[in-house]
Simulated scan of single mutants.
Amino acid sequence: MIAPTRHRVLRSLAVLLLGLLVATAAIAKPSNKWRIKCNHRADVAGVIVLRLTPEGQAAVEVTVDIAKGTRENEAARTIRKAIKSSALGERYKIEIDDGEDVLIKRRSRQPNIDLEIVSNTADGLKIKTHRE
């Protein structure tokens, strides 16, 4: 049996990676309401990057600066403010729930939205998303 050439191996890897990207996109399930849960406090200053993607539209990345020592309630308020000041802030209702949660709700006639945490460098501050 002849060993595969380097070209075939690279082509196979490219096809595999493309398949994974397509599968990841297919997993996305936009919703009319999302919850961002904040827990604990930031041990260091950092940045949270969120990606919000309305169905059939371009994604909007929201960057949130988090100061060292920021606790969950303050983090939720900071995240809410950052999303409200983004391109989507007027199109979706953004509110605080239970002090440490941020709710993103679809307003009438707006498309459902997908939400993902791209990164969180504010070690100690835990951020999770939940589709509702």
Score class of each variant (00 low, 15 high):
Lys126Leu: 15
Val118Lys: 09
Glu61Cys: 07
Ala122Ser: 14
Asp98Pro: 03
Lys128Thr: 13
Ser86Asp: 05
Lys68Met: 12
Ala76Ile: 02
Arg109Gly: 08
Gly99Ser: 08
Pro54Glu: 04
Ser108Met: 08
Glu72Asp: 14
Arg109Thr: 11
Ala75Tyr: 05
Ile104Glu: 01
Ser86Pro: 05
Lys105Glu: 11
Lys128Trp: 14
Glu100Tyr: 13
Glu95Thr: 15
Glu95Asn: 14
Lys81Asn: 07
Arg71His: 07
Ile113Met: 03
Asn112Ser: 14
Asn112Glu: 12
Val60Asn: 03
Ile79Glu: 00
Val102Trp: 05
Val118Gln: 07
Gln110Asn: 10
Glu61Asp: 14
Leu103Tyr: 08
Arg91Ile: 01
Asp97Ile: 11
Arg91Gly: 03
Ile66His: 03
Pro54Arg: 02
His130Arg: 15
His130Pro: 04
Ala67Val: 09
Ala87Asp: 14
Ile66Gly: 00
Gly89Val: 04
Arg80Phe: 06
Leu125Arg: 14
Lys84Thr: 12
Ala76Glu: 04
Glu61Gly: 04
Tyr92Ile: 03
Gln110Glu: 11
Arg71Phe: 02
Ala87Leu: 12
Asp123Val: 12
Leu103Ser: 05
Thr121Asp: 13
Ile79Gly: 00
Asn112Ile: 02
Arg109His: 12
Ala87Cys: 08
Ala76Asp: 03
Tyr92Cys: 02
Ala59Met: 06
Leu115His: 00
Pro111Phe: 01
Ile117Glu: 09
Ala82Trp: 06
Arg80Leu: 11
Val60Arg: 01
Leu115Trp: 00
Gln110Leu: 06
Gly124Asp: 10
Ser86Trp: 03
Arg77Phe: 04
Ala67Phe: 09
Asp98Val: 11
Glu90Pro: 04
Asn73Lys: 15
Leu115Ser: 01
Ser86Thr: 03
Ala76Gln: 03
Glu90Phe: 08
Gly56Ala: 08
Ile113Pro: 01
Lys126Ile: 13
Asn120Glu: 10
Glu100Thr: 14
Glu116Thr: 15
Ile127His: 09
Asp101Tyr: 09
Lys126His: 14
Leu115Cys: 05
Ala67Ile: 06
Leu52Asn: 01
Ser108Thr: 08
Glu95Asp: 11
Lys105Arg: 13
Ile117Lys: 10
Thr129Leu: 14
Arg91Trp: 06
Ile127Ala: 08
Thr129Arg: 15
Glu55Gln: 15
Arg109Glu: 11
Lys128Phe: 11
Ile94Val: 15
Asp97Met: 12
Val102Arg: 02
Thr70Cys: 03
Ala76Ser: 06
Arg106His: 03
Asp65Ala: 11
Asp65Cys: 04
Val64Ile: 12
Val102His: 06
Lys84Tyr: 07
Thr129Lys: 15
Arg107Ile: 05
Gly56Phe: 04
Leu52Tyr: 00
Gln57Asp: 09
Val102Ala: 08
Glu72Asn: 07
Leu103Thr: 05
Ala122Asn: 10
Ala122Glu: 08
Asp114Met: 01
Asn120Ser: 13
Val118Gly: 11
Thr63Cys: 03
Asp123Ile: 13
Ile66Arg: 01
Glu116Leu: 12
Ala59Lys: 04
Ile104Val: 13
Ala67Met: 09
Gly56Tyr: 00
Ala59Asp: 07
Ala59Cys: 05
Asp97His: 14
Thr78Gly: 00
Asp123Ser: 15
Ile96Ala: 06
Val64Lys: 02
Arg80Glu: 11
Asp97Thr: 09
Leu125Tyr: 12
